[in-house]
Structures are given as C-alpha cells and as structure tokens.
Design a protein around this nucleic acid. Structure first.
Lengths: 210, 210
DNA sequence: ATAAAAAGTGAGTGCTCGCTATCTATGGTA
DNA sequence: TACCATAGATAGCGAGCACTCACTTTTTAT
C-alpha cells in the first residue's frame, strides 16, 4: 500500500530534501522572479516545511547562493554540450550553433543564473558570494570556446569573441519577455544571429580544408 | 532667510513632488534594486510623505510604470545624443561610438529601465504596462540608427545590426557588477568593442568617399 | 532494546510591506 | 472676507516576510 519502511539513510534524506529545495528554488526564480521567491514559496514548491529549509540553509541568501552554484555547473555543462563537436565550417554551421546557444541561454537554469546576477548588482553580500562561481563559469566557458574555435582565431581574440556572443545572447534573453521562452525566435533575431555568424566567419576565414 | 511665501501654484507643487518622486525612484532602483525599492524608501529619498506618494500614484506599480516611461524618453534622447552627427567612417570612429554607447547604457536611467524590464519578466501586469513604452523606444532607436548608418547598409539589415549592438551592450551592463559603473572598461571589453567595430565596418564597406 | 543524534514539522515571533483614513496646510475662487 | 478643492503629513491596518522554537519522527550507535 504505502511505501514500505523505506530505510533511507540519513545522508540520503538530507541530500534528497536539499535537492528538492534547490530545484524548487530554480522553479520559483524562473516563474516568480527574485522578489517573489520567498522561503514559504520555495518550501511549498518543494513539499517540505520551513523548518526543514532552515535546518540546511541558515538564511534565505545561503539558499540562493547554493542555488546559484548549482545552476552554474549545469550551465557550463549545457554550454559544453551544445558546442562540443559542433561543426563551425560554414556560415550555416555557425548560425546553427548560435541558434542552439540561444535556446540554451533561455533554459530555466540560465534564467535562474541571470535573475541572481541581477539581484547581486544591488546586494553587496550576494555579489561577493557569487564571485567565485562567476569566475569559474567564465573560465570553463572560455575552455569550451577554445575547443570550438581555438584553432581558427588568435588566442587573444577568443575572450573578445566569446564576450560578444554570450553578452548578445544574454541581452537577448533579458529583453525577451515572452512568457514562453521556447517561442519562435522572431525575424530580426534570426537575421541578427545569421548576420553575426557571417561577420565572424568572414573575419576569421577558414585556414585550410584539412 | 527661508524661502519667501513662495506662492507656487497648485500645478507647480504637484509637478514638483511628482518629479521628486520619479527622480527618487530612479535613484532607489539603481542603488537598491527592484525588490528594495519600497514606497517608504522612495518617499524618504524624495523628502515627501507616503501620503503624498499615494495621492499622485494609486499603487506602487503605477509609480514604477510612470518611472519607466520617464526614463524611456531620457534613454532615447541619450541614445540620439551619443549617435547624432558621430563619424562612422573608420574602425576607430565606430569603436569610439560603441564606447560612448557603452557609457550611455551604464547610466542610471538605463540601469533603471533594465531593472524594470527584468521585474516585468515575472510580472504579467508590469509587462503589459511596459509594452507600449518598449515598442516606442525600439522604434525611436531604429530611427536614430537609420540616421547614423542608414545610407551604408541595406534597410533589412539595420534592425539586425542594432539588435546585435544594443543586446551586446545590455548583456555587458548586466554582467558588469562593479558598484562603480564608470570604471575602466577592462581589456576584454575594450577588445570586444573594437572587434565588433572591425567586423561591422568590414562587412559593410564604405560605398564612396563622397 | 534503548539511548542519542539527526531530520522534519508547524505554530509563533517581530518586523516591514503596500496601502488607507484622518487630519492640517495651502492655493484658487467668489 | 469666506469657502472649497487640492496637496501633503501622520498614524495605523492587515498581510506577508525571514526566521525560531518546542516538539515528533526516523535513523544510528550501543
């Protein structure tokens, strides 16, 4: 009938509710935004009591910082997954990669990261707490970009190109206020991505056909 | 000593406190962020009572919407001011324009606009309330861009290039968490702006020297 | 089996929030 | 002058906030 006397170990229970809380925080941040992500809302979403939350996280901010680090690793994994092994020979190839990156950037994990970054701008404590995760994420994204493009452009230009691409996609995500982030890209966005691909490819022409 | 029995008209008093409230809201949003911009904080900053605020704005959201429209007009004016009459012949010219645009985008008015945009993502009422201002702002920025670049690239590409530039600058502003937004651009940012200028200029070569 | 430790519950705390009601001060109108 | 409409100040309201505490339940150690 009900679950058998499950006999989960304490570590399992702990990890389980922590994971539920982190996932619930991601949901609340993407759906309700930073201001409306109250501890009560997170607990309701996670299906645990407030006491449980404050057993594992001393403050709301600690929960948010843990969530930020949680999504940061998932974000860099997603970035690697959409770039690893992708073809970047033709303009069409690069355009396709940019399109996939746009979809990645609109994912809940990335929305969460952005929401927390914005909150950190006007909260010194949160800002310093997020700094190491920020640097780690940037470094790993540079590594992934090097795997993709490293042999095609001077090493000095790689951070600049990455900055152009990810900042443009982030800016796009910020101004995309559609409630459904999987909606069609829209004409000018599609044109902008293709144009960016054209400019990058022609600025760093293919060195050899191998 | 003190002000003489000033004899300000009612309309003057009204306009004065409304202006003070809007300016105070801009300050609070840029310094404290959306969540911490309470009606009490705005009133303290403006030097008026809460009763005065709620006489002129029925809700907090009405104040925020009015502030958004207030800064939207100032933003488009600033955009025009930094682009109007600027030279865009050489790569250096375009790089300079991008640098000035970056400074403009980091201004309090633009920070305020961005803060409200982010809040609007997870607040349907605010989102619909900001929609007309958003469209108006986009249209006027397209006009300004046409004055700058219109004769150099096909009309169909203009929105795409504008999207690349402003989204990249907005993304840059979001990830620039320095408390002092007038700080030096940083090496990779400088390199990225110059690179973007190079790519755009070479992709749309000058048609004639006139 | 029993005691100790850890995990989880839920009512309650003080505080701040957006907002209102009531009052006074001031400018416009006769 | 008297009168009224508007502008602004102040105290306070219910609701929701982050957080705590006494308590029960579940796992672990003896």
């Amino acid at each position: 009938m009900t679950t058998p006397p499950s006999r989960r170990t304490q570590a399992d229970r702990r990890a389980g509710t922590i994971a539920a809380l982190l996932d619930a925080t991601v949901s609340c941040l993407t759906e309700r935004g930073y201001a409306a992500t109250s501890t009560a809302a997170v607990c309701a979403e996670a299906g645990v009591s407030q006491g449980a939350l404050f057993r594992h996280f001393p403050t709301r901010q600690a929960l948010l910082v843990a969530t930020a680090e949680h999504v940061a690793t998932r974000n860099v994994e997603a970035f690697r997954a959409t770039t690893a092994g992708a073809a970047v020979d033709s303009v069409d190839d690069v355009t396709a990669v940019l399109g996939h990156l746009r979809a990645t950037v609109l994912s809940p994990a990335n929305q969460t990261w952005r929401e927390l970054l914005v909150a950190a701008r006007s909260d010194a404590d949160l800002r310093t707490a997020l700094l190491p995760a920020r640097e780690s994420l940037q470094g790993q994204m540079l590594d992934a970009a090097a795997d993709l493009w490293g042999d095609r452009l001077p090493a000095d230009d790689l951070p600049a190109v990455l900055s152009i691409v990810v900042n443009m996609l982030d800016g796009l995500a910020f101004s995309a206020l559609d409630p459904d982030p999987t909606a069609a890209p829209g004409r000018t966005v599609e044109r902008a991505l293709r144009l960016l691909a054209e400019m990058v490819v022609s600025h760093y022409p293919q060195q050899e056909t191998r």
